[in-house]
Structure formats: C-alpha cells, structure tokens
Amino acid sequence: MLEKENQVLSELAGKFDCLSGKGVVPAQRRIFLDVPEEIFPDVLKYARNELKFVQLCTITGLDAGDCFQFIYHIADDEGTLLNLKRSVPKDHAVITSVLDSYNGAIFYERELEDLLGVKVEGLPEGRHYPLPDNWPQGQYPQRKDWDPESLSQIK
C-alpha cells in the first residue's frame, strides 16, 4: 500500500533536499506537497518531465489568510495525483506561468488573475476569464475580504 506514492516523494526529496519529509499521503493515489516558491518552477518541471506527471488537471487558487496559495493538481497515467502547493505573500502576489510545461494551463492561470488578483508572469495578453471585460478594476471575488456589496457602490 502506498508504495508508489512514497516512491514519488522520495524521488522528489532525492532531487530537492528541502522537500524531504514534507509530503503528505492522505489516501491512495493522493500526494500533497508544500514547495518553497524559489524552487517551485524546477520541482514542477521535474515532476512533469522525469516523474511523468504529464496532465495538469487544474490549478486551485485560494486566499489562505496571510498569503495566497496555489495548488497545481498534476496527474500521471497511472491515476496518481500529485498536488504541489506554492504560496506568495499578499503584498507581492506574483507567480510565474507554467505554460511552458503545460500548454493547457491558460484558462486556469487567467482565472487566478481574475478571481484572486495575482499577477501571472509569462501569461500572454488576452481577454478576461471568467469575469466580463467591463468588470471593475481591483475587485477580486475569491479573496476572503471581498464583499459583493462593494460592486453596487461602484456603479
């Protein structure tokens, strides 16, 4: 039981020292791992290219109180789901795009920009998703302190 999951974690820890002992395996085929922001792009590339987590299922962005957290849900062809987490401070909410590893990430990253107000560097210019083009600036619905009432005051 959980051999595969622990194998993935030990390979990641073998490549990146600071990840050692950090992973959690709550269930079969589920791995959660906190990754420091400095090495996140490298860890993701390693998981994609060496460990064959080739599918990006989606990216969850959330307001974790003192920071923004992003969870990249990536899967391999055997059904294992690796959930890599990165966090950035709210006063410097900038992350790098993962489009070079996962071409399908474009809508997921636009959604982070629209709903959480984080800047995704490397994302090409384009229309909003999922909010409308005339959505007022500075209104980020997925933030915990956002109040829908504030919209009515703008108009």
Partner: peptide
C-alpha cells in the same frame, strides 16, 4: 483538512478540490 476527487463525467474528467 483537504481532499481532491476525480470523476469520469460523460465529457471527460471532472475534478473537485475541497478545503
């Protein structure tokens, strides 16, 4: 806690995350 669930919907993979 947190959990992720995957489902093969008629149109493909549906995925939900809960915290």
């Amino acid at each position: 806690g947190e959990a992720v669930s995957r489902y093969e919907a008629p149109r493909g993979e549906d995925i939900h995350y809960l915290r």
